[in-house]
Computed example of a mutant assay.
Amino acid sequence: MSNAVAHEHLKDEGTRLQVTAAGATSGLISRFIIAPLDVVKIRLQLQTHSLSDPLNRQTTPPQGPIYKGTLPTIRTILRNEGIPGLWKGNVPAELLYVCYSAVQFTAYRSITQLLHHYTSENPLPPSAESFIAGATAGGFATATTYPLDLLRTRFAAQGNTKIYTSLPSAIWRIYTDEGPRGFFRGLGPGLSQIIPFMGIFFAAYETLRPPLSELHLPFSTGGAVAGMIASVIAKTGTFPLDLVRKRIQVQGPTRSLYVNRNIPEYSGTTWGTLRAIVQREGFRGLYRGLTVSLVKAAPASAVTMWTYERSLRFYVGLGIGAGPEPAEERSDTK
């Protein structure tokens, strides 16, 4: 596959409906596979105490289970909450991943076509085009699906004490106790993280995919490997903002009721929360759960991109969602 063809593969193949369906399918499958690692990551991110803090800054004893490391955390959850504990929050998370993936891939494709249209005389470099399209699509998808992200975090943070017994009851309680703004706690750091994350991810993916596609890799494809590498690079660079988002998402009247019962009260602003975490936990506190996040992010992105490409070929091959494209979309197709 030539570099030009590889660069256009994600962006121009299939109709808008086929791209949306393929994105939703990839999100659904990816989420179910990595759900236990997501629960572990959230539990570690919300844990404020450290057994290895050299400065001994902890002024209050830890309350609730002590999590340390991916496998020990999995064992603790299994011992205290059983197998279902590893899939807590999976319903809102599945809805989140399906909606997010569908919006993200559709927006990415549409934004790229707009860039092609308005820069046809002076085309952007592929990496710059991918960064702009990826960052914009990621920000738009985050903003539109954010309430589901908050619900996913709160369900995953529950222990055996049920704060929310079902998705409808959670929506009603948050709306009643916190108002509509309660569904958007942490949106600021969420957008601050996702825009550079998706920009870096898609730029790295589109850069790595063409050369890796030329290689004959065992048990994998060039697209899957490119997705893994791109995800690790992007996740490491933006991880502190993801942790801040999680800490702010569980603020409010239920803050002390989660399995990590001594979550501090933060100002709600990105920089204020960053400063509070560094003062209390040191810079290492900004990277709690990074290891499991990387372990989760790499296969999740690989499964997402692998499933997306094959789902898109499947829908295109069957003619599902095929039909006349809008005039503005047809005019941009190369």
Rank of each mutant, 00 (worst) to 15 (best):
residue 255 R to W: 02
residue 219 F to E: 11
residue 271 W to K: 10
residue 254 T to C: 05
residue 274 L to F: 11
residue 195 I to Y: 03
residue 280 R to S: 15
residue 205 Y to E: 02
residue 199 G to N: 09
residue 270 T to A: 07
residue 272 G to D: 09
residue 199 G to H: 06
residue 233 I to G: 02
residue 265 E to H: 07
residue 213 S to L: 03
residue 181 R to T: 15
residue 253 P to S: 05
residue 207 T to E: 11
residue 250 V to D: 05
residue 248 I to V: 14
residue 233 I to L: 15
residue 255 R to A: 12
residue 211 P to Y: 09
residue 234 A to S: 14
residue 238 T to M: 11
residue 254 T to F: 11
residue 262 N to W: 01
residue 252 G to S: 06
residue 212 L to A: 08
residue 240 P to D: 10
residue 257 L to T: 12
residue 248 I to S: 02
residue 232 V to Y: 02
residue 194 I to L: 12
residue 241 L to S: 00
residue 240 P to G: 05
residue 257 L to H: 13
residue 251 Q to A: 08
residue 249 Q to F: 00
residue 184 F to L: 09
residue 248 I to C: 04
residue 239 F to I: 07
residue 265 E to Q: 12
residue 217 L to C: 11
residue 212 L to G: 04
residue 199 G to I: 06
residue 271 W to M: 15
residue 217 L to E: 11
residue 189 P to G: 04
residue 194 I to P: 02
residue 273 T to A: 08
residue 259 V to H: 07
residue 273 T to L: 02
residue 218 P to W: 14
residue 196 P to N: 12
residue 211 P to I: 06
residue 196 P to L: 12
residue 271 W to D: 10
residue 215 L to E: 14
residue 255 R to H: 02
residue 227 G to V: 06
residue 250 V to C: 07
residue 187 L to N: 07
residue 222 G to W: 01
residue 185 R to N: 09
residue 193 Q to E: 15
residue 212 L to K: 04
residue 229 I to K: 00
residue 184 F to C: 03
residue 193 Q to V: 05
residue 260 N to D: 13
residue 278 V to P: 03
residue 274 L to V: 14
residue 254 T to V: 10
residue 245 R to W: 01
residue 277 I to A: 05
residue 232 V to I: 14
residue 267 S to K: 10
residue 218 P to F: 10
residue 276 A to Q: 12
residue 275 R to L: 07
residue 275 R to E: 12
residue 192 S to P: 04
residue 213 S to G: 15
residue 238 T to H: 03
residue 255 R to N: 10
residue 272 G to K: 10
residue 274 L to C: 07
residue 192 S to I: 08
residue 247 R to I: 06
residue 241 L to E: 00
